[in-house]
Write a protein that binds this DNA or RNA. Sequence first.
RNA 1: AGCGAGGUAGGGUAGCUCGGAGUGCCCGCCGGGCUCAUAACCCGGAGAUCGGUGGUUCAAAUCCACCCCUCGCUACCA
Length: 499
Amino acid sequence: MPKSGDALEKFYIATAIPYVNAPPHIGHALEFVQADVIARYRRLLGEEVYLATGADENSLKNALAAEKLGISTEELCLRNSEAFKVLVDSMGISYSAFIRTSIKGDHWKTAQDLWSLCNKNGDIYKKKYKGLYCVGCELFYTENELVDGLCPEHKTKPELVEEENYFFRLSKYQNMLEQLLTSFKIKVTPHFRGNEALGFIKAGLEDFSVSRSVKRAHGWGIPVPGDESQIMYVWFDALAYYLTAAFFSVDEKRFRSLWPVDLHVIGKGITRFHALYWPAMLLSAGLETPKEILVHGYITVEGQKISKSLGNVIDPAALLKKYTSDEIRYYLIRDIPSFDDGDFSEKSLIDRVNKELLGDLGNLVNRVLTLAEKSGLKEFRGNSELESGIDIGSVQERFSNLELHEALERIMEFVRKCNAYVNSKEPWKLQGQELESVLYNLLESIRIAAILLFPFIPTTSLKISKMLDFEIKGISDCRFRDSFTGKITRQGYLFRKIE
RNA sequence: AGCGAGGUAGGGUAGCUCGGAGUGCCCGCCGGGCUCAUAACCCGGAGAUCGGUGGUUCAAAUCCACCCCUCGCUACCA
């Protein structure tokens, strides 16, 4: 809730950073959009929002892929990360920082500083690690990952390999983590994801490996401070990115103004890392734990899981050639539940755009503009009978519960009510004060709808604000003013019908 | 197997905490209306044994018990 008068409240929100060994797919776009919608909403509340994202590049897979292609790993990462950066930019994501973890500099120093803090606290120690290692994958497998005792990729028998690595004392934080989660000091949304994490804790936490040999890592990754023979485990360094983006090692004052993370936006596959490993690492380093973690589901395509072998990977870059970023943003939030898996289909994307963006919103704006222009009026006053058509409090509640699809649904319900209002009032038959009052209601309603829709479809909202000559500043403007006086200028259609 | 979530019209959902006529929303389907609007918009209708069985109750989608089905999580996977 906005607190007028007080200093600006900060809101630090961050997406997970995607592995860049594959190009972006629609699931990445979903996460970016969700984070951006929340970020833009918090700005409307008057908060100082900091949105971090980036690319996770220190994976062994990158080193292996680069070797295959005969290029340097740096070159490969640059190339692949660029695709993510382009996606983030073209989806209109209002990020404050884009961190690439393979770039030697702030991030390396931050990851190493975090390591040193944990180490100083006695939570990092050396241990012999024995595991089933597949030479082909260059990965350790657990018993139950194997298929008939063989590597699922190569169908070969993995070797029993022993290696000395550093371990993080996760077990030490078992009780503290349980306490943080049950007391909602770390709130996991939706709730059942938090229960999963708690269930995991109850089964007993074991320390986890946080390094591997330079050889096994192919020399790729961030060196362990004080031990040149070891490279940090990718997760340790990837999680440290949240500190890097907040200037942890370079600007203490700024860091203190940003920390802790108010909201992590992540996929369901990495809940454990964010709800358990990461808070434990922060506790060890003496840093504040995140306040909330939003866990979204995965996107299926025509009911099928996304996978390369099925060839059903949806390339958001290709979508962006056919549809505007607002159209894709709208579809992703509208059709994919915030907390669960959702199905992608281009047909329903087209349906949503044609039916709702064009048919409901675009049509409303267009018909009201025409009526307002024809009226010749410059100022509009009247009763405020349409104002009750939307319950701002209810929309805000949905936002703060992170039920983005529900928030959007409420707003679009209002848009439909406005269309019904036009039909029932038949303003084309009215004149004088009656006509003015109807137009006043519609213009004010469109203005409010545009503000509320701004987090979802910012480009469209800005277009509307230009046509009706108002500014999008904050949620507090979402109530009827005494009169509507904006200069109305038509600037074409908001949406084109997709055939 | 253990823990968790869920099964509501052809599809997708809300309602369930704190029982009160199967109530709501979106898509699809059928019929009508309007002409301000991008064949857009509005209204009405058909369509559900609210997973099953049993129980509590004057009354159950909602509470209790049992069963069936689906899906997540269970150590390094957006």
